[in-house]
């Protein structure tokens, strides 16, 4: 990890971002302002979801317009397991539900990873606009499936009456739940950094830059991308489980294409492929939504303007502006 430890401008900015995200909820807790803790938790979870997408999009260049599917699947895992634990009805194969977060996380990781594998296996046979469209189509299928499934709330969604539990702590306490999300975000960022620097990450990034080159040295780009896509899906799925627990509610809106678009927007705002791009983007997005959402219903219009400016004039996003061009070794 020496590369990561070196004091570069980018690492300094990353450190500041991570510290700020940690400091705000503690301050809010001290001043009795739980709302700001919730805001920070939202940032952490969206950053986690976008970090998942950043693996596929940032490293692999795979513009998935369907990551809401994995986010929503993670959310429904939390909701459904909790519902079964509450009612006592067995889930599948006589297995019970669970109110334990770590059980939910593992199931969310595995299930969204597997669905990612299936969706990726088909989608990755296409590229460019077709890839964008086919991932969107798969996500829409999951969305309509959830809507038409009355057992778990259909269109109305599913409430989680009491937030799921984690051994030894009170997850209902906002600061505690924030810290859980924060630690998971840091772990995911560490995973991203490790993967990016690894052999696998080298191949994944090379496949983004030049697919034929990768094949010409004897590596099959398809397998590399598929693996990257599945890992990406799993991480975003985990974020979905946390998101459901934050809101204590899961609904098909988590699966909608708006959500997929939002994740892409977060990454572009923050800096595509940058380690802390998703966090910078999520912070910007949530703060923006909070600050402008109160003033005008049309805050998304202004978000669109910012996005336009970023795409036209600041390709590296917020981190590109602050920390300069990315280095790739």
């Amino acid at each position: 990890m020496r590369e990561i430890m070196i004091v570069t401008r980018e690492n300094l900015i990353n450190l500041i971002l991570a510290s700020l995200l940690l400091a705000v909820p503690f301050a809010a807790d001290a001043f009795g302002q739980p709302f700001y803790i919730t805001l920070a938790t939202r940032i952490a979870i969206l950053a986690l979801a976008a970090t998942g997408l950043n693996l596929a999009l940032g490293l692999g260049g795979l513009v998935s317009f369907g990551h809401a599917a994995f986010f929503g699947i993670g959310g429904y895992v939390a909701g459904i397991l909790a519902a079964h634990a509450f009612s006592g009805d067995p889930l599948v194969f006589g297995l019970p539900g669970s109110k334990q977060m770590w059980v939910i996380w593992i199931v969310a990781l595995i299930l969204s990873g597997l669905v990612g594998l299936a969706i990726g296996a088909i989608s990755l046979r296409t590229s460019g606009v077709y890839f964008i469209m086919i991932t969107l189509a798969f996500a829409q299928m999951v969305y309509y499936f959830a809507i038409s499934w009355p057992a778990y709330g259909g269109e109305d969604g599913l409430s989680i009456l009491v937030r799921n539990q984690f051994p030894g702590v009170n997850t209902m306490r906002p600061l505690t739940f924030f810290l859980i999300c924060y630690v998971i975000l840091l772990l995911a960022l560490a995973l991203f950094a490790l993967i990016r620097a690894s052999r696998f990450g080298t191949a994944l990034q090379a496949a983004r830059q030049n697919e034929v080159r990768v094949a010409t040295v004897g590596i099959q780009p398809y397998r590399i991308r598929l693996t990257g896509f599945a890992i990406s899906a799993a991480v975003t799925g985990l974020a979905g489980a946390l998101f459901a627990d934050l809101n204590r509610f899961v609904s098909p809106s988590m699966l909608s294409w708006h959500m997929s678009g939002e994740l892409i927007v977060l990454i572009i705002l923050g800096g595509t492929g940058r380690l802390f791009g998703p966090l910078a983007g999520a912070a910007l997005y949530v703060i923006f939504e909070y600050a402008l959402g109160g003033l005008t219903e049309r805050w998304q219009f202004f978000l669109g303007l910012i996005l336009l400016v970023v795409v036209l004039f600041a390709r590296g996003g917020l981190l590109g502006l602050l920390a300069g061009k990315a280095r790739h070794g």
Partner: peptide, 26 residues
């Protein structure tokens, strides 16, 4: 985007065998 070195390292890792190694920094 890669340096010349990392380009050649891509070929070396392909020759050595697996690209499915996720944690060791190249």
């Amino acid at each position: 985007d890669f340096s010349g070195l990392r380009n050649v390292m891509l070929a070396v890792q392909a020759k050595q065998g697996s690209s499915f190694r996720f944690f060791k920094p190249v």
